[in-house]
């Protein structure tokens, strides 16, 4: 099954290596990883998406916690969550095809963020299938995709109190079920 781990780590050199190395050692291919600052000072938030058995989830979480720089781990698994990805897509256009690409972008609620004489750049956010849908039609209809940059998945649990943030901030967890 697909696992999504949200990992709060200390923001210092080498920490991403330690986290990535743990998945490498278990011979698990990371499908996507995003890293950035979190709401907490000096802590980064890593979202790792990987394919593994359902039983492996607990062990990976336990092993992640054994890393000295890891502060909090949440295995989102199948819990209700919002997942988004950001993509920048550079497209080759001619004066004739430009309006057609504009139309496609409109349909996908994407934005044009750069316009050059022979190319333009589209910014799109959404779930994986939406982004892949746009790339597909761009390729099929215009065959004009020059470059794609995708952020990887970002995930956040739905609802106010389901996030691991609460736990990390030592706010009482007692009366909320920790899914899975």
């Amino acid at each position: 099954m697909l696992h999504t781990f949200v990992i709060y780590v200390e923001d210092r050199p080498g920490v991403l290596t330690r986290v990535a190395s743990l998945f490498r050692r278990l011979n698990i291919n990371i499908e996507s990883v995003t890293v950035g600052h979190s709401e907490r000072k000096d802590l980064s938030r890593i979202t790792v998406v990987c394919e593994s058995t359902s039983e492996a989830g607990n062990r990976i979480r336990a092993s992640l916690y054994k890393l000295e720089n890891v502060v909090e781990v949440d295995d989102i698994a199948k819990a209700p969550a919002v997942t988004r990805e950001l993509a920048l897509i550079k497209v080759r256009v001619t004066p004739e095809s430009r309006s057609r690409v504009f139309e496609l972008a409109e349909v996908f609620r994407a934005r044009i963020v750069d316009l050059a004489p022979e190319s333009l750049m589209i910014e799109i956010t959404g779930v994986e299938s939406k982004i892949e849908g746009l790339i597909e039609v761009l390729n099929e209809v215009e065959n004009c995709v020059l470059e794609i940059c995708r952020s990887g998945k970002m995930t956040m649990r739905r609802g106010q109190h389901t996030s691991s943030v609460e736990h990390a901030m030592n706010v009482g967890l007692a009366n909320q079920p920790h899914a899975n």
Binding site: E55, N58, R59, A62, S63, Y65, K66
Partner: peptide, 8 residues
């Protein structure tokens, strides 16, 4: 004492 050993 090591949770990662449980059910390994």
């Amino acid at each position: 004492v090591d949770p990662s050993e449980i059910n390994k």
